[in-house]
Amino acid sequence: MIKCTLKDLIERHEVTQTDIANATGITRPTLLALMRNDAQGIKFSTLEKLCDYFNIEISELLVSDKRYKPTKQEQLDNLINIARQLKSELQ
């Protein structure tokens, strides 16, 4: 599966979805879907705008999930979900 690193790029560059939307014309719902990795597809023009905005190659924006490294926040969210599941199983 292909993963989008947009969430990590936003954190590293300390920008907001609004900053990107204003600069690129990409809608916030599109950005959110890419950040969550639940987009069903992506236009080439969107890819190009994001690569230009962050001054990166497409290989830095889209990666194989075999090479994808979750952000610290994603790792923390995963641990919280595991703890919640364990707690519910104990009750």
Rank of each mutant, 00 (worst) to 15 (best):
M1F: 12
K3Q: 11
K3H: 11
T5N: 11
T5G: 03
L6K: 00
L6R: 00
K7Y: 05
I10F: 02
I10D: 01
E11R: 15
E11L: 13
R12H: 10
R12S: 06
R12V: 01
R12K: 15
E14R: 15
V15W: 06
Q17W: 02
Q17V: 01
T18D: 06
T18S: 11
N22H: 12
N22Y: 06
N22A: 13
A23P: 02
T24C: 11
T24D: 07
G25W: 07
I26G: 02
T27N: 13
T27Q: 14
R28P: 02
R28D: 03
P29I: 07
T30V: 06
T30S: 10
T30K: 06
L31G: 01
L31Y: 03
L31V: 03
L32N: 08
A33P: 01
A33G: 04
A33K: 03
A33W: 00
N37S: 06
A39D: 08
Q40M: 05
Q40R: 09
K43A: 11
S45V: 11
S45R: 09
T46H: 10
E48P: 02
K49W: 02
L50T: 01
L50M: 07
C51F: 04
D52K: 13
D52Q: 12
D52S: 13
Y53M: 02
F54D: 01
F54T: 00
F54Q: 00
N55S: 13
N55I: 07
N55V: 11
N55T: 10
E57Y: 13
E57V: 13
I58G: 07
I58L: 10
I58F: 08
S59A: 12
S59M: 10
E60N: 14
E60Q: 14
L61G: 01
L61F: 04
L62W: 01
D65Y: 10
K66F: 11
R67Q: 12
R67L: 15
Y68P: 02
P70E: 10
P70Y: 05
T71Q: 11
T71P: 05
T71S: 15
T71R: 07
E74H: 06
Q75A: 14
Q75M: 15
L76C: 10
L76G: 05
N78R: 13
N78I: 08
L79S: 13
L79A: 15
N81M: 09
N81Y: 04
N81K: 07
A83Y: 06
K87W: 11
S88M: 08
L90M: 06
Q91M: 06
Q91L: 07
